[in-house]
Design a protein around this nucleic acid. Sequence first.
DNA 1: ACCCAGGGTCATA
DNA 2: TATGACCATGGG
Length: 220
Amino acid sequence: MDANVLSKVYQILFAAYGPQRWWPGETPFEVMVGAVLTQNTAWSNVEKAVANLKNGDCLDPSAILNLSDDRLAEMLRPSGYFNIKAGRLKSFCAWYIKLGRYETLSGMDTLVLRHGLLAVHGIGRETADDILLYAFKRPVFVIDAYTRRLFARLGLIRGDESYEALRHGFESALGEDTSLFNEYHALIVRHAKEICQKRPACERCRLASSCPSADLAKLV
DNA sequence: ACCCAGGGTCATA
DNA sequence: TATGACCATGGG
Protein backbone atom coordinates (compact mmCIF):
# COMPACT_ATOMS: atom_id res chain seq x y z
CA MET A 1 0.00 0.00 0.00
CA ASP A 2 1.30 3.40 -0.99
CA ALA A 3 1.16 5.68 2.04
CA ASN A 4 1.18 8.76 -0.16
CA VAL A 5 -1.86 7.66 -2.15
CA LEU A 6 -3.71 6.60 0.98
CA SER A 7 -3.16 10.06 2.43
CA LYS A 8 -4.45 11.71 -0.71
CA VAL A 9 -7.58 9.60 -0.70
CA TYR A 10 -8.13 10.65 2.89
CA GLN A 11 -7.61 14.32 2.07
CA ILE A 12 -10.12 14.20 -0.77
CA LEU A 13 -12.74 12.54 1.39
CA PHE A 14 -12.15 14.88 4.30
CA ALA A 15 -12.29 17.93 2.05
CA ALA A 16 -15.59 16.71 0.61
CA TYR A 17 -17.36 15.64 3.78
CA GLY A 18 -15.53 17.11 6.76
CA PRO A 19 -15.19 15.47 10.18
CA GLN A 20 -17.74 12.72 10.80
CA ARG A 21 -17.66 12.65 14.61
CA TRP A 22 -17.77 8.87 14.91
CA TRP A 23 -18.85 6.68 16.63
CA PRO A 24 -22.40 7.82 17.44
CA GLY A 25 -23.02 6.95 21.09
CA GLU A 26 -22.75 8.64 24.46
CA THR A 27 -20.66 6.01 26.24
CA PRO A 28 -18.13 3.36 25.27
CA PHE A 29 -20.64 0.66 26.16
CA GLU A 30 -23.23 2.21 23.85
CA VAL A 31 -20.61 2.17 21.10
CA MET A 32 -20.00 -1.52 21.69
CA VAL A 33 -23.70 -2.35 21.65
CA GLY A 34 -24.08 -0.37 18.44
CA ALA A 35 -21.19 -2.26 16.87
CA VAL A 36 -22.95 -5.58 17.45
CA LEU A 37 -26.38 -4.36 16.39
CA THR A 38 -25.21 -2.72 13.17
CA GLN A 39 -24.00 -6.00 11.68
CA ASN A 40 -25.36 -6.02 8.13
CA THR A 41 -27.99 -3.51 9.19
CA ALA A 42 -28.76 0.13 8.44
CA TRP A 43 -27.75 2.45 11.27
CA SER A 44 -31.19 4.06 11.40
CA ASN A 45 -32.58 0.69 12.49
CA VAL A 46 -29.91 0.33 15.16
CA GLU A 47 -30.86 3.69 16.64
CA LYS A 48 -34.38 2.47 17.28
CA ALA A 49 -33.16 -0.63 19.08
CA VAL A 50 -30.73 1.40 21.18
CA ALA A 51 -33.55 3.82 22.03
CA ASN A 52 -35.61 0.85 23.23
CA LEU A 53 -32.77 -0.21 25.51
CA LYS A 54 -32.42 3.32 26.86
CA ASN A 55 -36.14 3.70 27.43
CA GLY A 56 -36.16 0.43 29.34
CA ASP A 57 -33.14 1.56 31.33
CA CYS A 58 -31.30 -1.44 29.93
CA LEU A 59 -28.26 0.08 28.26
CA ASP A 60 -26.03 -1.68 30.76
CA PRO A 61 -24.35 -5.09 30.61
CA SER A 62 -25.90 -6.56 33.75
CA ALA A 63 -29.31 -5.12 32.91
CA ILE A 64 -29.13 -6.79 29.51
CA LEU A 65 -28.15 -10.12 31.04
CA ASN A 66 -31.09 -9.88 33.43
CA LEU A 67 -33.60 -9.63 30.58
CA SER A 68 -35.17 -12.80 29.24
CA ASP A 69 -34.12 -13.74 25.73
CA ASP A 70 -37.58 -12.90 24.45
CA ARG A 71 -37.77 -9.51 26.14
CA LEU A 72 -34.33 -8.55 24.87
CA ALA A 73 -35.11 -9.76 21.36
CA GLU A 74 -38.28 -7.70 21.37
CA MET A 75 -36.31 -4.55 22.20
CA LEU A 76 -33.82 -5.36 19.44
CA ARG A 77 -36.51 -6.10 16.85
CA PRO A 78 -36.02 -2.92 14.78
CA SER A 79 -32.35 -3.74 14.20
CA GLY A 80 -33.17 -7.00 12.43
CA TYR A 81 -31.85 -10.51 13.18
CA PHE A 82 -33.23 -9.81 16.63
CA ASN A 83 -33.08 -13.37 17.97
CA ILE A 84 -29.51 -13.80 16.77
CA LYS A 85 -28.44 -10.41 18.08
CA ALA A 86 -30.06 -10.96 21.47
CA GLY A 87 -27.81 -13.97 21.92
CA ARG A 88 -24.75 -12.14 20.64
CA LEU A 89 -25.35 -9.18 22.89
CA LYS A 90 -25.70 -11.42 25.93
CA SER A 91 -22.53 -13.32 25.03
CA PHE A 92 -20.69 -10.04 24.74
CA CYS A 93 -22.09 -8.68 28.02
CA ALA A 94 -21.15 -11.85 29.87
CA TRP A 95 -17.58 -11.57 28.59
CA TYR A 96 -17.49 -7.84 29.31
CA ILE A 97 -18.53 -8.26 32.94
CA LYS A 98 -16.38 -11.32 33.44
CA LEU A 99 -13.27 -9.43 32.40
CA GLY A 100 -13.99 -6.43 34.56
CA ARG A 101 -15.76 -3.96 32.31
CA TYR A 102 -14.17 -0.89 30.74
CA GLU A 103 -11.65 -0.11 33.44
CA THR A 104 -9.89 -3.47 33.36
CA LEU A 105 -10.21 -3.92 29.60
CA SER A 106 -8.64 -0.50 29.01
CA GLY A 107 -5.45 -1.74 30.62
CA MET A 108 -5.10 -4.70 28.31
CA ASP A 109 -2.79 -4.91 25.34
CA THR A 110 -4.59 -4.27 22.07
CA LEU A 111 -3.86 -7.64 20.51
CA VAL A 112 -4.84 -9.48 23.68
CA LEU A 113 -8.06 -7.51 23.81
CA ARG A 114 -8.68 -8.28 20.15
CA HIS A 115 -8.24 -12.01 20.69
CA GLY A 116 -10.63 -11.81 23.61
CA LEU A 117 -13.25 -10.05 21.54
CA LEU A 118 -12.90 -12.50 18.67
CA ALA A 119 -13.46 -15.37 21.09
CA VAL A 120 -16.91 -13.98 21.93
CA HIS A 121 -19.62 -15.76 19.98
CA GLY A 122 -21.07 -13.32 17.47
CA ILE A 123 -18.11 -10.97 17.34
CA GLY A 124 -16.08 -11.23 14.16
CA ARG A 125 -13.15 -9.19 12.90
CA GLU A 126 -15.02 -6.12 11.79
CA THR A 127 -17.14 -5.83 14.92
CA ALA A 128 -14.10 -6.43 17.11
CA ASP A 129 -12.17 -3.72 15.31
CA ASP A 130 -15.08 -1.28 15.52
CA ILE A 131 -15.05 -1.80 19.27
CA LEU A 132 -11.28 -1.53 19.54
CA LEU A 133 -11.11 1.67 17.51
CA TYR A 134 -14.22 3.51 18.58
CA ALA A 135 -14.79 2.31 22.14
CA PHE A 136 -11.20 1.65 23.27
CA LYS A 137 -9.46 4.19 21.06
CA ARG A 138 -6.92 1.70 19.77
CA PRO A 139 -5.09 2.29 16.47
CA VAL A 140 -6.88 -0.45 14.52
CA PHE A 141 -7.95 0.09 10.92
CA VAL A 142 -11.41 -1.32 10.27
CA ILE A 143 -11.91 -3.20 7.02
CA ASP A 144 -15.42 -3.48 5.69
CA ALA A 145 -17.12 -4.11 2.35
CA TYR A 146 -17.06 -0.39 1.54
CA THR A 147 -13.32 -0.24 2.11
CA ARG A 148 -12.73 -3.18 -0.20
CA ARG A 149 -15.02 -1.76 -2.86
CA LEU A 150 -13.58 1.74 -2.83
CA PHE A 151 -9.92 0.74 -2.93
CA ALA A 152 -10.53 -2.03 -5.43
CA ARG A 153 -12.24 0.46 -7.75
CA LEU A 154 -9.28 2.77 -7.36
CA GLY A 155 -7.07 -0.11 -8.39
CA LEU A 156 -5.08 0.01 -5.18
CA ILE A 157 -6.03 -3.50 -4.10
CA ARG A 158 -7.49 -6.56 -5.81
CA GLY A 159 -10.32 -6.82 -3.33
CA ASP A 160 -10.03 -10.49 -2.48
CA GLU A 161 -7.22 -10.08 0.02
CA SER A 162 -7.77 -11.51 3.49
CA TYR A 163 -9.14 -9.22 6.17
CA GLU A 164 -5.93 -9.36 8.17
CA ALA A 165 -3.77 -8.69 5.15
CA LEU A 166 -5.69 -5.53 4.33
CA ARG A 167 -5.77 -4.35 7.92
CA HIS A 168 -2.02 -4.81 8.19
CA GLY A 169 -1.55 -3.06 4.87
CA PHE A 170 -3.42 0.06 5.94
CA GLU A 171 -1.96 0.11 9.43
CA SER A 172 1.64 -0.24 8.35
CA ALA A 173 1.26 2.33 5.59
CA LEU A 174 -0.50 4.96 7.71
CA GLY A 175 1.20 4.38 11.04
CA GLU A 176 -0.57 3.88 14.36
CA ASP A 177 -2.86 6.88 14.37
CA THR A 178 -6.14 6.34 16.20
CA SER A 179 -7.64 9.69 15.22
CA LEU A 180 -6.78 9.17 11.57
CA PHE A 181 -8.21 5.63 11.52
CA ASN A 182 -11.33 6.87 13.26
CA GLU A 183 -11.99 9.55 10.67
CA TYR A 184 -10.83 7.50 7.70
CA HIS A 185 -13.23 4.64 8.23
CA ALA A 186 -16.10 7.01 8.97
CA LEU A 187 -15.36 8.92 5.77
CA ILE A 188 -15.31 5.73 3.70
CA VAL A 189 -18.75 4.82 5.02
CA ARG A 190 -20.01 8.36 4.46
CA HIS A 191 -18.67 8.35 0.92
CA ALA A 192 -20.35 5.03 0.18
CA LYS A 193 -23.68 6.50 1.19
CA GLU A 194 -23.24 9.64 -0.89
CA ILE A 195 -21.72 8.15 -4.01
CA CYS A 196 -23.61 7.24 -7.16
CA GLN A 197 -26.14 4.59 -6.35
CA LYS A 198 -27.23 4.61 -9.97
CA ARG A 199 -25.09 4.11 -13.00
CA PRO A 200 -23.88 5.69 -15.16
CA ALA A 201 -23.63 9.09 -13.49
CA CYS A 202 -24.84 10.49 -10.23
CA GLU A 203 -26.49 13.81 -9.55
CA ARG A 204 -23.43 15.03 -7.77
CA CYS A 205 -21.08 14.46 -10.68
CA ARG A 206 -23.26 16.44 -13.07
CA LEU A 207 -24.09 19.34 -10.80
CA ALA A 208 -20.85 19.91 -8.99
CA SER A 209 -17.72 21.18 -10.67
CA SER A 210 -15.81 18.67 -8.61
CA CYS A 211 -17.13 15.66 -6.76
CA PRO A 212 -15.15 13.31 -4.55
CA SER A 213 -15.64 10.41 -6.94
CA ALA A 214 -14.19 12.38 -9.80
CA ASP A 215 -11.32 13.65 -7.68
CA LEU A 216 -10.57 10.12 -6.55
CA ALA A 217 -10.63 8.87 -10.12
CA LYS A 218 -7.87 11.31 -11.05
CA LEU A 219 -5.59 9.63 -8.58
CA VAL A 220 -5.33 6.44 -10.59
C1' DA B 1 -41.89 -5.90 -5.70
C1' DC B 2 -37.06 -5.89 -5.21
C1' DC B 3 -32.59 -4.57 -3.16
C1' DC B 4 -29.56 -3.82 0.36
C1' DA B 5 -27.79 -2.25 4.92
C1' DG B 6 -21.55 0.21 9.04
C1' DG B 7 -21.56 -9.22 9.48
C1' DG B 8 -21.15 -13.68 11.57
C1' DT B 9 -21.92 -18.56 12.07
C1' DC B 10 -22.57 -23.00 10.50
C1' DA B 11 -22.63 -26.91 7.23
C1' DT B 12 -20.53 -28.66 3.40
C1' DA B 13 -16.74 -29.82 -0.07
C1' DT C 1 -9.74 -22.35 2.28
C1' DA C 2 -13.91 -21.21 0.16
C1' DT C 3 -18.48 -21.05 -1.06
C1' DG C 4 -23.71 -20.93 0.24
C1' DA C 5 -27.70 -20.74 3.46
C1' DC C 6 -29.45 -18.44 7.12
C1' DC C 7 -30.74 -14.74 10.18
C1' DA C 8 -35.02 -10.15 9.62
C1' DT C 9 -36.23 -5.17 9.90
C1' DG C 10 -36.96 -0.82 7.43
C1' DG C 11 -36.02 2.58 3.73
C1' DG C 12 -35.13 3.44 -1.14
